[in-house]
């Protein structure tokens, strides 16, 4: 069953998901074993929280509690965004959970448009929970499925370490513009979650890089601080202000820091000798 599901996934998932292949491709150095184990715990915790939060979020939708559902949307997504590179190893699930309307030719009207953003569209654009129950059911099933698949997933070190740059590329390509959460404008939650996910990966391997390239570590840490400090200006309540509150000058500062983090973190794999 598990194997069938894997085969149904993306080619990428296939390539890295089969233990034999993964083992043949990578030989993690001993010093990476502990960081990888720690990362596995991190994503397990995030995915457990994702399933718990999605359960509450979708229950609110099914109960027709519009305000509660809206309030739970952004914090629920955050756990997904933090581990997105791992989730993206399963292309089918990532599309079902997190695709945006413009991934479909028919946009919002496309029957294959499901997941978080389909619910976001209903909750904000239609201002209603009407008709969303089946989509909510499917989202909960999909995140639960994701959690199950990741349990058995051998984590290729180059995918984990490369995930830090992937997350920053993700921010640079879609979060900085406010197009990800276009109906709810809660992009800054996703932004912070992506950054947290990248920062976690960096922290885990930082001691391994620090001895050879302290200037690199210093620069990356400084840019993470710039991003965190700038986002902190927009904290409100448990989360963040709406995206349109972000000033143009702060957007410029964030863009530069994010692009530079993406450039720097893209070298992390190579610095650790990973292919």
């Amino acid at each position: 069953m598990k194997l069938n599901r894997l085969l149904a996934g993306s080619a990428l998932a296939l390539a890295v998901g089969l233990p034999g292949l993964a083992a043949a491709k990578v030989e993690p150095s001993l010093e990476l074993v502990q960081p990888l184990a720690d990362y596995k715990i991190y994503i397990s915790e995030k995915l457990q929280k994702l399933v718990d939060d999605t359960t509450a979020f979708t229950a609110a939708i099914e109960a027709g509690e519009l305000d509660k559902a809206k309030a739970l949307y952004a914090p629920t997504r955050a756990s997904y965004e933090a581990v997105e590179p791992v989730a993206e190893l399963f292309g089918d699930l990532d599309a079902a959970i997190d695709a945006r309307a413009d991934d479909f030719e028919k946009r919002e009207k496309d029957p294959n448009f499901t997941g978080f953003h389909r619910l976001e569209y209903g909750l904000w654009e239609k201002d209603s929970t009407k008709g969303l129950a089946p989509v909510a059911d499917k989202l909960l099933a999909d995140v639960t499925e994701l959690q199950g698949r990741v349990v058995d997933l051998p984590l290729p070190p180059e995918k984990v370490v490369g995930g830090a740059a992937d997350l920053m590329n993700e921010v640079a390509a879609s979060k900085i513009s406010g197009e990800e959460d276009r109906y709810s404008h809660s992009d800054l939650w996703d932004f912070q979650a992506n950054v947290d996910g990248a920062e976690k990966i960096f922290e885990l391997v930082e001691p391994l890089v620090a001895k050879d390239d302290p200037a690199f570590v210093q620069r990356v840490s400084a840019n993470f601080k710039t991003v965190d400090d700038t986002l902190a200006k927009y904290r409100a309540g448990q989360g963040f202000e709406l995206y349109d509150k972000l000033s143009e000058s702060d957007r410029t500062v964030l863009s530069a820091a994010v692009n530079t983090l993406a450039e720097d973190l893209a070298t992390l794999r190579g610095k650790l000798g990973l292919n």
Partner: peptide, 10 residues
């Protein structure tokens, strides 16, 4: 330029 000056040019 974008790659090499990413920390200053947006």
């Amino acid at each position: 330029l974008l790659k090499n000056l990413s920390d200053q040019l947006v």
